[in-house]
């Protein structure tokens, strides 16, 4: 699935409300590698991820996947942020079905739906409306979006928030599987995930120096 071989971000800088959040930030990821972003609150982790996703304008810098394709960068990445994007009046299955079709994933028939939901143990509640889900279940549903429509780059902002320990392990397995298939991931997390991150970037130390 993942055709992109590498991600290169060069010389990124971002200013929010007149304040320089980060500048001259560069990193590169190869297929199968993940980057862990760390640093204290407010240091710009979310800003960087949103900038990479094109949800925030960056002041300088370029981000490119290679080999270059006709698809723009934002169509080759998944973003999981603080908000889950779950519709409370649609069922778990309908929420997932929508994102699968919207993101152009392979058709989500009953069998595939069940396999995907089973990954986080959501299969017994497939017909439950989103309004009745707990915070952890909502987060799991948001993460399953990544599984229904394969895209090479995952941008995960605190993906393990409100997940229990077993689900955090499942999340780690899911990311590891994605990397094995040649994908890439940029993850911010305060909780150690025991995942072999090829790169680490501490935004807090960077600012101090």
């Amino acid at each position: 699935m993942a055709r992109a071989k590498s991600l290169r971000a060069r010389n990124l800088s971002c200013r929010r409300g007149g304040r320089l959040i980060f500048e001259k930030l560069s990193f590169a990821l190869k297929s199968g590698e993940a980057l862990l972003l760390t640093g204290p609150n407010g240091v710009g982790k979310t800003t960087l991820l949103r900038g990479l996703a094109g949800l925030l304008p960056l002041e300088h810098g370029e981000i490119a996947l290679s080999p270059a394709t006709d698809q723009p960068l934002y169509e080759q990445l998944h973003y999981v942020g603080h908000l889950n994007g779950i519709k409370t009046s649609l069922s778990v299955a309908e929420n997932l079905q929508f994102w699968c079709e919207y993101y152009g994933g392979p058709p989500l028939n009953e069998e595939r739906l069940e396999t995907v939901l089973a990954r986080f143990g959501l299969d017994p509640i497939a017909q439950l409306p989103g309004a009745l889900l707990s915070a952890g279940q909502k987060r799991k549903l948001a993460l399953l979006r990544l599984a229904v429509a394969p895209r090479p780059l995952w941008l995960l902002d605190e993906p393990s928030v409100s997940l229990d320990r077993a689900s955090t392990r499942h999340l780690r397995d899911m990311i590891a599987e994605h990397l094995e298939e040649g994908g890439m991931a940029v993850v911010t997390s305060h909780i150690p995930m025991s995942l072999a991150f090829a790169h680490r970037l501490d935004l807090g130390k960077r600012r101090a120096s």
Binding site: G54, L55, Y74, E75, N84, Y102
Partner: peptide, 13 residues
Amino acid sequence: YEDGSLDLLTLGP
């Protein structure tokens, strides 16, 4: 906008 779907919609085709 409130539930974050709008962000995700911008990442679609």
